[in-house]
Design a protein around this nucleic acid. Structure first.
Lengths: 288, 288
DNA sequence: TCTTGCGTTCTGCACTACCGAACGCTGTTG
DNA sequence: CAACAGCGTTCGGTAGTGCAGAACGCAAGA
């Protein structure tokens, strides 16, 4: 009953979102941060002390978290190595997640064909609040590999899949989304103002495919095209990724038509409409 | 200070492993169980009430856990659907985990070739305490898909990859491992006694590849062969999976030689030895 | 209309997650 | 050879927090 509120009443710990933190479990949030720290760290793993430092927690706390995650198989103890690295349970969970996304099973055969035909890495993305998230990938036969990550949000304005999806939105939606993201510059070729982007999207809409010409990474280009779900809305995008120098410029349109054709295949499998039915409507709605 | 030890001193809550639980964080362990419950549940997701029931916790606790995991992207709120399902962050983490395993990048091109040549699903497994764990998969061109999971422990005695790895061990090691696993029956063809298994392994050792002839799942067969790391130890196995009816019996040996050849390729890439150098030594050491 | 089940919010208590300190150990440095 | 610095581990004590249960609004079915 004492009026003792909080010890040292004047202290205001730097809580980020008290109204949202009310329903989060601190230790679980910390455990997730721990996993991400290891994911972004060296493939050889991180030592307990490094983890504790990065996490901003004591070694004993970090040890308890790491032990718990190791028991669950999410982390793995690399004995002679530095220490903790990601465990095989994450492979299992990622595989199950992809298999539960209905798109994965549908798209994989299409991606395989596309990768074999174009000799390029092919991926399929879904829209996560306007951001493209790649959920499936089939590598091309070439052995030169660059990093084409899965499962993480890409920037909408500097990726072929993102721009293909933006091209299906209204001008207001594009402006709102780009205002939220900030249209950060990634390379010298990145389009960083909305009006230029809208012009670029108009071309993409007319073509039925979008191009990322070294706008996300130097020397890398992508070509993407959207597909539609059975409810008629944009369900995601197919894209291929390659090294700019490998492809003559005049083949870009040919590649675009190929990608567009395979996006059609996905649309058909989903029971969605085709570009020829959807794009004119979208163009009429979005542009004057 | 009162001598009050623990409230209600005589109660002995049914703790499973008090000496191990001392360093585990309860809420994190619960969160991992929650993820697994959803992973094993319907692809459409599970409702909050269902989760609370399966977890054995109150709805408010489950809500807090689920909210925290959703914020981390590990879970996803399927709006009109029942409720929670796995999120794209798991795809990302699984992808990173595979990319951090050095074997993944090395094997993927080999698996692609093997899958194209055999028209079958090809996978690579590593050994996790004697249990095979598949870490990479390339589907064959056939559209008929069956479940070939990644990242989870398979039974050693009833899988081609497992038996291929067992064939590199000594008789004592095989007996010890099979004693630990129990050699559970999976189908009518499963080998459930150690002596029969040892005879089977001897054949595999002589051939340089192991066969799972409907021993793990009815109508499904696998062929697997191990590869060796640069330290000369068994580093894992390559295997292909198919439907029994699709393949005449007399082609089994041809398929086995193909898989063996591709396992050789992985061995070469890893700087490990070949069957011709390793298997005779293993055979001489394990069998009289 | 009444009922049943859902998801959400709130409050208070017991507990547990957290920190700090101390220990044994290894490898490096003087 | 000794002193040190860093590692991983263990152990108490405390305050903070995770937890359960009750209560609420709402939607769908009886």
């Amino acid at each position: 009953m004492g009026p003792a509120q909080s010890p040292g009443g004047a202290d205001t710990p730097p809580e980020s979102d008290p109204q949202e933190d009310r329903y989060t479990v601190r230790s679980v949030a910390r455990a997730m941060r721990l996993i991400n720290i290891i994911a972004e760290g060296s493939p050889d793993g991180l030592s307990l002390s490094d983890l504790a430092r990065s996490l901003g927690a004591s070694k004993s706390t970090t040890l308890a978290l790491a032990r718990t995650l190791t028991t669950a198989g999410v982390l793995r103890d690399s004995r002679p190595g530095p220490r903790y690295c990601l465990g095989t349970a994450l492979i299992r969970l990622g595989d199950i997640t992809r298999s539960q996304l209905p798109l994965g099973d549908i798209c994989r055969p299409v991606l395989s064909e596309l990768a074999e035909l174009t000799k390029m890495t092919s991926r399929v993305a879904i829209s996560d609040g306007g951001y493209p998230v790649f959920i499936e990938r089939v590598d091309g036969p070439g052995s030169v590999r660059f990093h084409t990550p899965l499962g993480q949000r890409e920037v909408p304005h500097a990726s072929a899949a993102g721009k293909a999806m933006l091209a299906t939105m209204t001008e207001e939606q594009v402006r709102a989304l780009c205002g939220a993201t900030g249209m950060q510059r990634r390379t010298a070729h990145t389009i960083t103002d909305v009006d230029s982007l809208l012009a670029n999207l108009a071309v993409a809409r007319a073509n039925g495919f979008a191009v990322d010409d070294e706008e996300d990474a130097e020397g890398i280009f992508c070509v993407g095209a959207v597909f539609f779900g059975h409810d008629g809305s944009c369900a995601g995008a197919v894209s291929v990724t390659g090294i700019k120098g490998d492809l003559p410029a005049w083949r870009m349109n040919e590649l675009g038509r190929t990608v567009r054709r395979y996006a059609h295949k996905v649309s058909d499998l989903l029971g969605g409409g085709r570009y020829s039915e959807r794009y004119p409507a979208a163009a009429a709605g979005a542009m004057a």
